[in-house]
Design a protein around this nucleic acid. Structure first.
Length: 568
DNA sequence: GCCGTTTTCGGCCCGACTGTTTTCAGTCG
C-alpha cells in the first residue's frame, strides 16, 4: 500500500520545516496529518481517487494536494524543493534525544553536520565544543543519547512484568500513596515505547521520591529530573516517566498521563470552547480561580459534559464525540469469551498433551475449545500425518466422554506459496474447524500475497485464516495485504479472520479490526502451545477493545450452539 | 497549514525540565 510512503514523506516534510524554522503551526499541521493518516486503514490512493482525502480532519487543501502528488509520482516536489535548502539526511539528527529541529539546523548551518556519524566525528575532533551553548555536560548528554538511539517499541506483554515490578518498588518506598501506570500501557496498545508512571504523594516527599526513583537498580541513566517530573532510562533502553501530584489532582493527572496526546489535546480544546481550562492538575474556570473537577477521571469527564471513556478508546477516534452523546460501545470483556478456537497439543508442536489442553480449557470455564494441530509438509511444526490424525481422533473420542466441555476437532494447515492447500478434501471435510495460515514465503509483493489468501479462501473446507498479516514484533513486519478484497471474500465464503492473541503477534492489528469488525467475521484465538497460553486471550481482548468491539463482533463470544450454526 | 454554533482571519493545549537565557527558547510528552 501507498500509505506508508505518504506518511513517511509528510513526516520528512515536517522535519525539514522544523529545521528551517517554519511556523510551528505549519509543522504541527503536517504532524497532525501524519497522526490522522496513521489511523487510516483504507488505501490512501483509493481515497485520492474518490476525492475523499479532505474528509479526514487535519487534511486540507495544501496537504491533500501534496498527498495527491506523492500518490501519483511516488515522491513530493515540495519535499524535493525543501531538501535543496537542507539535505534530508539532516533530519536523522532529530532522532537523537534532546536534539530537535532548531539544534539540528544549527549543527548543519554552523558545522555542516548532516548525519549521526558526522555528529560523532564533531564531538571527537572537538569541533562541537567550540559552538556556543554546547557545554561539556550537553555534549555528554548527546553522546549518551546516540548510544541509545535504537529505541524501538516493545510488545506490551513483554514489558508488563517489569512495569508492575517498578510500581511495586515505588510503593514499597512508602514515599508515595498511589502509583498507576498510564500511557499506552494503560491504553493497552499492542506495543509500547515507554512507560508513564502517575503517582500521588505528599509534597514534602516529592523530592525524596524522585531521588528514590532515579536510584533504583533498574535505572541506568537519568534523562531529566525535577520535583514534579522525572525521566529515566531503564536497563532495557526504555524510558520511564514519573509524574507526582497531590491527591486532589489524581483524576486529572491520571487522565493526562494516560493520553493519548491527541485525546488530551481534543479535551483541552473542548474545555477552552466551554470557557474552561484543563491541565494535569484539574479542570478550572477560565481564570483558574476555581477548581471544578480533578479527583477522579469520571469527575473531569463529567465536568466536560461526557461519560467516562475507557483508556483503550482514548485515541481521538470519535470516542469523545460518542461520550458526549453517551453512545460509547459496551466493550467486550474476558467474561464474554466462551471458548478458544486455535490450540495445539504435543501431537504437533504443542507442549502439553491432548488431555491437558482440553482439561485446561475446561478449567478456564469455557464452553468449547478447538484443537487445531498442524497438518502438512512443513516439518518445523512436527505436523500430523494421516496416521497420527486418526490416533488423535481416537484419543479425543475417549476424552470427550470424561469432560463437560465441547471439543471441536480441527486443524491448522499451510497456505503454500501458490495459495493452494496441500491437504486432501477427504481429510478436511471430516474436521470440525480448519484454520489456514501462511507459514512460509513471507516476502512476496502485496498483490501476490493477497491473491494467495484469496486462493486459499476458495477452499470450501477452510473455516478461518490464522494470524492473517504474519507480523511478529520481535521478528518481522506484516506482509502487505489488501484487506478490503480479503474481507469481502471472507464474507462471501463465510471464512473467519483471526485475532491471534500470541503476545508477539496480536494479529490482526487493532486498526484493522476497527475497520473490519462490521464487514468481516472475526474471532480471537490464543494459538496456545501450553495450557498456560490460554491466558494469552487477554491480549486478544485488548486488541478487540481498542477496536471498539462489543461481544457481538467476536465469534467466540457465541454459545456453542450458536457457534456450530455459524461454522460452514 | 487547518479550521469555524461568537470567527473565512486570527487563532492554534498546557506545563515541566534544561541550560547559562538574568526572563526565555528549546525539547519533550
Amino acid at each position: 500500500m501507498m500509505n506508508e510512503l505518504v506518511i513517511l514523506k509528510l513526516k520528512q516534510i515536517a522535519d525539514i520545516l522544523e529545521i528551517i524554522g517554519e511556523s510551528v503551526y505549519k509543522i504541527r499541521a503536517y504532524r497532525k496529518a501524519v497522526e490522522a493518516l496513521n489511523l487510516v486503514t483504507e488505501d490512501i490512493s483509493v481515497l485520492v481517487e474518490e476525492g475523499k482525502l479532505k474528509d479526514i480532519p487535519g487534511i486540507g487543501d495544501a496537504i491533500s494536494t501534496k498527498i495527491d502528488v506523492i500518490v501519483k509520482t511516488g515522491d513530493s516536489y515540495y519535499l524535493q524543493k525543501l531538501t535543496q535548502e537542507v539535505p534530508l539526511e539532516v533530519t536523522s539528527l532529530m532522532r537523537v534525544e534532546g536534539i530537535g529541529g532548531k539544534t539540528a539546523g544549527r549543527l548543519y548551518q554552523e558545522l555542516g553536520i548532516k548525519s549521526i556519524a558526522g555528529l560523532e566525528e564533531a564531538i571527537e575532533t572537538g569541533a562541537l565544543s567550540k559552538l556556543s551553548s554546547f557545554t561539556e555536560g550537553k555534549i555528554e548528554k548527546i553522546q549518551r543519547a546516540i548510544k541509545f538511539l535504537k529505541r524501538g517499541r516493545t510488545a506490551l506483554p513483554k514489558i508488563e512484568k517489569i512495569a508492575y515490578g517498578l510500581r511495586e518498588k515505588l510503593m514499597q518506598s512508602k514515599l508515595l500513596t498511589k502509583v498507576d501506570i498510564g500511557g499506552s500501557f494503560r491504553r493497552r496498545k499492542s506495543t509500547v515505547r515507554d512507560l508513564d508512571f502517575h503517582a500521588i504523594g505528599k509534597p514534602e516527599n516529592f523530592e525524596k521520591a524522585m531521588k528514590y526513583f532515579t536510584e533504583m537498580e533498574e535505572v541506568i541513566d537519568v534523562i531529566a529530573t525535577g520535583k514534579l517530573k522525572t525521566t529515566v532510562k531503564l536497563f532495557n533502553n526504555m524510558n520511564v516517566d514519573l509524574r507526582i501530584l497531590e491527591e486532589e489532582s489524581d483524576g486529572a493527572g491520571l487522565l493526562y498521563s494516560t493520553g493519548a496526546r491527541s485525546h488530551t489535546i481534543k479535551l483541552r480544546t473542548l474545555a477552552e470552547k466551554k470557557e474552561l481550562l484543563l491541565n494535569e492538575y484539574g479542570l478550572y474556570n477560565k481564570d483558574k480561580s476555581k477548581l471544578l473537577a480533578s479527583e477522579t477521571e469520571e469527575d473531569v469527564y463529567a465536568g466536560l459534559g461526557m461519560c467516562f471513556i475507557p483508556p483503550e478508546l482514548r485515541e481521538d477516534r470519535g470516542e469523545i464525540e460518542a461520550a458526549m452523546k453517551n453512545a460509547l460501545p459496551a466493550l467486550i470483556t474476558m467474561e464474554d469469551i466462551k471458548g478458544d478456537l486455535h490450540t495445539h497439543t504435543n501431537y504437533s508442536d504443542g507442549k502439553a498433551t491432548l488431555e491437558e489442553m482440553i482439561k485446561g480449557a475446561e478449567q478456564k470455564g469455557w464452553e468449547y475449545v478447538a484443537i487445531t494441530d498442524h497438518y502438512g509438509k512443513n516439518k518445523i511444526y512436527n505436523p500430523l500425518d494421516e496416521e497420527k490424525l486418526q490416533k488423535q481422533k481416537k484419543e479425543l473420542g475417549k476424552l470427550v466422554e470424561e469432560v463437560e466441555i465441547n471439543v471441536l476437532h480441527g486443524l491448522e494447515i499451510d497456505i503454500i506459496k501458490t495459495g493452494e492447500i496441500e491437504v486432501s478434501k477427504e481429510i478436511l471435510k471430516e474436521m470440525d474447524f480448519v484454520i489456514a495460515s501462511i507459514h512460509s514465503h513471507f516476502d512476496l509483493p502485496e498483490e501476490e500475497m493477497t491473491q494467495r489468501i484469496l486462493t486459499a479462501l476458495d477452499n470450501e473446507y477452510v473455516n478461518a485464516i490464522g494470524h492473517p498479516t504474519g507480523r511478529m514484533f520481535s521478528k518481522r513486519a506484516d506482509y502487505g495485504l489488501n484487506f478490503s478484497k480479503i474481507a469481502k471474500k471472507c464474507t462471501q465464503t463465510n471464512t473467519w479472520l483471526e485475532i491471534n492473541a500470541q503476545p508477539d503477534r496480536q494479529d490482526i492489528d487493532d486498526h484493522l479490526v476497527f475497520d473490519l469488525k462490521e464487514k468481516a467475521l472475526i474471532y480471537i484465538g490464543t494459538d496456545a502451545h501450553y495450557v498456560k497460553d490460554y491466558n494469552f486471550m487477554q491480549w486478544g481482548i485488548n486488541v478487540a477493545r481498542r477496536s471498539w468491539c462489543e461481544k457481538k463482533h467476536i465469534l467466540n463470544c457465541l454459545s456453542f450452539k450458536e457457534l456450530q450454526k455459524m461454522i460452514k
